[in-house]
């Protein structure tokens, strides 16, 4: 269940659309729910969102599984989403992915045993001029080098402690 504050946020989002068009709030509310309930969308979370927006659960499942930013399974605390499309590949993203794999001892799509890191490869994030890059939470980390990756990993570990 959302807190009072988040419920108000949901109300505010719904108010952006004409009366009866509250389904339009689905993507923003799913983002909120994912942030709030552990970084992924369980069936219970989606059913809850459906009830908030007065739509059927299947409408939520259909949408949640369409968009790549919604996690349908639990993920690590920090998700490294490294871009590997053309422009990043041209600037060495494959080396960065290999480096992270070795450093964290996980494969793409896997989570470290301590549940701290998940490594994903993603398609173009729109930061081609600052390649190689990755998304970490809300922000982009750009011009990646092995040294920068080390720094980021340390930073995440420090946050966890």
């Amino acid at each position: 269940m959302f807190s009072e504050e988040k419920l108000n946020k949901v109300k505010e989002i719904i108010a952006r659309y004409p009366q009866g068009k509250q389904k339009s709030a689905l993507l923003p509310v799913l983002h909120l729910a994912q942030e709030e309930f552990g970084g992924w969308l369980s069936a219970e979370t989606m059913d809850y969102v459906a009830s908030l927006l007065q739509i059927t659960p299947i409408e939520v499942y259909e949408v949640a599984t369409f968009y790549s930013m919604f996690n349908m399974k639990p993920v690590g605390k920090h998700v490294f989403e490294v871009c590997h499309t053309g422009p990043c590949m041209l600037r060495g993203s494959d080396n960065i992915i290999d480096y992270i794999k070795k450093k964290l001892n996980i494969g793409v799509g896997e989570t470290t045993q301590d549940g701290l890191f998940t490594l994903k490869t993603v398609e173009c994030l729109g930061a081609c001029g600052y390649a190689p890059m990755m998304q970490l939470g809300k922000h982009f980390r750009e011009h990646l080098t092995p040294e920068k990756v080390d720094e980021i990993i340390n930073e995440c570990r420090a946050k966890a402690n």
Binding site: T56, I58, Y61, E62, T65, F66, Y67, S68
Partner: peptide, 10 residues
């Protein structure tokens, strides 16, 4: 009355 199945995934 209510649809229970749909298209999932992409």
């Amino acid at each position: 009355e209510t649809r229970q199945h749909g298209i999932l995934g992409r």
